[in-house]
Amino acid sequence: MFPNVNIVKRHPGPYEAYVALSKETTAAARSAGLSTILCELVKIRVSQLNGCAFCLRDHTQAAIAAGETADRLAVLPAWWESQYFSEQERAALTLAEQVTRIEHQHTSPDPLTDVEGVLTPEQIAAVTWLAIEFNGWNRIAVTSHFKVAP
């Protein structure tokens, strides 16, 4: 268990810089032509892998507000076994999982999804930034013990 210290309250400057990074990452995703729903799916999937309840709740609500369905959210933890997700979403989720599970990338076989055949280089860069950003947000929320209550 992490020490019970809220790093945001103790050092707000890095948090404010991270908020600015988040705005830049969102702008890059929009510029690359990625939909709000795809971006939220990436954030949710990264948060699922990291076990971040705070980000899961926040971005599930954002995805629903953007028009995402309960069916797709229900199968997101096993997205590769379903036919709910577009080729672009599958490529983005594959890439987000590779970034999040980076420790496995040196020994894992190539993914079944052809990320470079589906996403443009600009989209690959934008999804990579989203995954990097959200791995950071998950770590901020989990280590600071952000409250998650109904």
Rank of each mutant, 00 (worst) to 15 (best):
K43M: 09
H59G: 07
A96M: 08
P109R: 03
H11V: 11
R101L: 14
A20S: 13
N4V: 13
T94Q: 02
N6G: 07
I102Q: 07
A20L: 13
P12R: 12
V148C: 09
D71P: 00
Q83E: 15
I37G: 00
A28Y: 01
V115R: 00
V19G: 02
A65N: 15
S35H: 06
C55Y: 09
G136C: 08
R90H: 05
R30W: 02
V118F: 01
A78I: 12
A53Q: 07
R139T: 07
D110Y: 05
H11A: 15
I102T: 11
P3I: 15
H106T: 14
V99L: 10
S144Y: 04
P150F: 04
K9L: 12
R101I: 04
A92G: 06
G51T: 07
H104L: 15
V142A: 01
L34Y: 01
D110C: 01
G33S: 02
E103V: 11
L21W: 11
V118Y: 00
E87I: 07
T120R: 00
A28N: 10
D71V: 12
S22E: 12
A96L: 09
D110I: 00
G13E: 15
L73Y: 04
L56G: 02
P150R: 08
H11N: 14
L38Q: 09
I124Q: 13
W80D: 14
P109V: 06
A17Q: 13
K147N: 07
A74H: 14
V99W: 04
I44W: 00
A63V: 08
A91I: 03
P77G: 11
E24V: 08
R139H: 12
P121T: 07
V118S: 01
S47W: 05
L34G: 00
G51Y: 06
R101K: 14
N138Y: 09
N50F: 02
T100D: 02
K23N: 15
L119R: 06
T26V: 14
V142R: 04
L41T: 06
G117P: 10
D71S: 12
R72V: 11
V42I: 13
T26M: 07
W80Q: 15
F2E: 12
H59E: 05
L112Q: 13
A53M: 04
W129A: 09
S31V: 00
V5N: 09
A66H: 03
V127C: 07
E103D: 08
R72Y: 10
